[in-house]
């Protein structure tokens, strides 16, 4: 069976959940080979094996980290040439899509971004995408070169398939041109203790209706173990960080449960949450377009409804 290259997304060896999803999807298409770039492999080894990596290509970080995107694309291009994989799977982050973009040009290969499903097909992997703010689904495939596919977080449930991968240290040459955009400073995000917005099973978002007070949104999220999101209106007003924005120009999330509190539901917001499995809204305005999408809606003041619900959840959980 052909190899399927999976680019590991990690922070100092802490593998992000999306990688486990990619390894799970890769097993449908062939034998997963994890591409691990940077330091901290020892911390990642167990996870990669547990989710079925048959091989690991390990690339030291010296010539790759510290530069934006381009060196990683060169690493993958060299591996694609050598291994002739059935596909390359990369997470659909901003960085992931840029790496995929450069890899596609380098290898003359078709690129599909933001897949929400990948299945084996006669002529290669078949993908499903959700487009036009979630209004349409599109079935597509790559017709030239090596299929390069970026996959959205939460597109598959990670399933374990323990393997003992053969680990190979790979020497790669990185061109000087690829090292022209240097990262001169990195400031890690402040830890909130809440789940990552992209990965969370439940997301609770606040909008204009919070009037800048996110405390009932955060308390309700914490009672549910949820991530906190915000509409663009709330972010533009400076009430919540841009890194938490849900919508077309923020995160596109697809959790099991999405709760929109004080969010009217403009098309740009819907583009970021419409594929959530279950949607709940709380809004004072019974005409708010968000109510067209909901499985359950409360017409009311979030400052009354959320604290009552929070208290009830805490009681129920005992």
């Amino acid at each position: 069976m052909a190899e399927v290259l999976v680019l590991v997304d990690h922070v100092d060896g802490a593998v992000r959940k999306t990688t486990n999803e990619l390894l799970t999807l890769a097993r449908r298409l062939g034998e997963p080979s994890a591409v691990f770039i940077g330091d901290g492999y020892d911390a990642a080894a167990d996870t990669l094996g547990r989710f079925g990596a048959q091989k690991v290509y390990k690339i030291a970080g010296a010539d790759v980290e510290g530069y934006l995107v381009a060196p990683k694309a060169e690493v993958l291009a060299q591996l694609v040439e050598r291994t002739q994989p059935a596909a390359v799977l990369i997470g659909s982050s901003a960085e992931g899509k840029e790496i995929a973009a450069r890899l596609a040009i380098k290898t003359n290969s078709g690129l599909i971004t933001d897949a929400v499903d990948v299945q084996p097909g006669e002529g290669g992997p078949q993908t499903t995408q959700s487009v036009f703010a979630g209004g349409f689904t599109v079935q597509a495939y790559v017709s030239k070169g090596t299929p390069i596919i970026t996959v959205k977080p939460n597109s598959a449930s990670p399933e374990e398939a323990p393997a003992s991968p053969a680990v190979e240290d790979v020497d790669v040459t990185i061109s000087d041109a690829a090292k022209s955009a240097r990262i001169v400073e990195t400031k890690p995000r402040e830890k909130t203790g809440r789940p990552d917005l992209n990965e969370a099973a439940i997301v609770v978002s606040g909008g204009r209706g919070t009037s800048g007070d996110f405390s009932p949104v955060e308390a309700f999220a914490d009672a549910l173990g949820a991530a906190v999101g915000a509409s663009r209106a709330a972010v533009d007003a400076g009430w919540y960080p841009h890194s938490n924005q849900v919508g077309q120009t923020g995160k596109q999330v697809s959790p099991q449960l999405y709760v929109a509190a004080g969010i009217s539901g403009a098309i740009q917001h819907r583009a970021g949450m419409q594929t959530s499995k279950t949607i709940v809204a709380i809004n004072k305005d019974s005409e708010a377009p968000i109510f067209e999408l909901v499985d359950f809606g409360v017409v009311g003041d979030l400052f009354q409804v959320l604290p009552q619900a929070t208290e009830k959840i805490i009681q129920t959980k005992g």
Binding site: I279, S286, F291, E292, G297, A309
Partner: peptide, 17 residues
């Protein structure tokens, strides 16, 4: 999406949620 149940808060909206 099929619109689900919409309730109006009459003091018990949080409980119903």
């Amino acid at each position: 999406r099929q619109q689900g149940e919409i309730v109006t808060d009459e003091g018990d909206g949080g409980q119903k949620l």
